[in-house]
């Protein structure tokens, strides 16, 4: 456990905790009106004592919008990764554990999906289903599934060849019980690492989708949407892009650092 308390672990873990706290607490502590109230006299105002991080094109407080946007961004990313795990885990485990033709068919499909760049797949699905919050989650979740399924399959394949699995098989353990009791617990560490890193990618993907107008739609506020709104005002008010951009960057940086440390702790082989 002491590996967690390296510089990287403390900073990464700290950022992740902070972002989670903001995402959970901001909606409870900050009234919606603080973020939606328009002040037409101070549109695109720079950071000041009244508006710590400035205002956007409608004179809304950027800091509160950024804090409240955390919930949307984190929720979308978290649910999307969870969704790709729910689909990818059975696919990967079945493929890796049973092998044979099932493996061939499933992995051929996964390899085909991997030929589509994740962002392209997510954008296409979102455009097809119609962009909104739920479909953004579905789009990112589906786009990430082949990556997770591939990694999970590799891990399941490795574990399935372990002597303890052979031993368990020798005493007549059924396939179902084998997967639950021996395979799943042993493939979890690398999957947790991968899920953490996927979370970082999912936040970037949400930002990208919303930036192109094919993700979260107003009135939902997310960081990507805030960056998109800032595009026309970059000349006069660069902070409108910097505030949400920094929020994305810090969150993703924190998740990546935390993921790196998690890997060192949980998956020492790749150190």
């Amino acid at each position: 456990m002491k590996e967690f308390f390296t510089g990287k672990g403390i900073v990464g873990g700290g950022i992740v905790l902070l972002v989670l706290a903001v995402a959970l607490l901001a909606p409870l502590l900050i009234p919606d009106t603080w973020a939606t109230q328009m002040d037409m006299r101070s549109r695109l105002a720079g950071p000041s004592t009244t508006y710590l991080m400035g205002t956007d094109q409608l004179g809304r407080d950027l800091m509160f919008r950024m804090l409240l946007g955390a919930q949307t961004s984190i929720m979308i990313a978290g649910t999307a990764v969870l969704m790709s795990l729910v689909i990818g885990l059975p696919l990967g485990v079945i493929s890796g554990y049973f092998g044979g033709w099932i493996d061939n068919v499933l992995m051929r499909l996964v390899d085909t999906l991997l030929a589509f760049p994740a962002l392209l797949l997510a954008l296409t699905i979102s455009a097809v289903l119609g962009p909104n919050l739920t479909n953004t989650i579905i789009a990112i979740g589906i786009a990430f599934t082949p990556y997770l399924a591939r990694i999970i399959r590799g891990e399941a394949l490795r574990v399935a060849q372990m002597p303890y699995v052979e031993a368990a098989r020798a005493v007549g353990t059924s396939d179902t019980w084998m997967i639950i009791r021996h395979i799943l617990p042993n493939i979890m560490p690398p999957i947790i690492v991968q899920a953490t890193i996927s979370l970082a990618f999912a936040i970037l993907a949400e930002a990208g989708l919303s930036f192109l107008g094919l993700g979260t739609q107003p009135p939902d506020a997310s960081w990507g949407l805030m960056i998109q709104a800032s595009r026309d005002y970059l000349d006069v008010a660069p902070w409108t892009a910097l505030v949400p951009g920094a929020a994305v960057a810090i969150t993703v940086l924190g998740l990546n650092m935390f993921g790196d440390v998690l890997r060192d702790v949980l998956d020492p082989r790749t150190k």
Binding site: G245, V248, A249, V252
Partner: peptide, 17 residues
């Protein structure tokens, strides 16, 4: 690490500026 953490369109905006 900074490079992988920033969305590329954010880099784009910064470069334009």
């Amino acid at each position: 690490l900074m490079g992988v953490s920033l969305p590329d369109f954010f880099w784009g905006i910064m470069l334009i500026l």
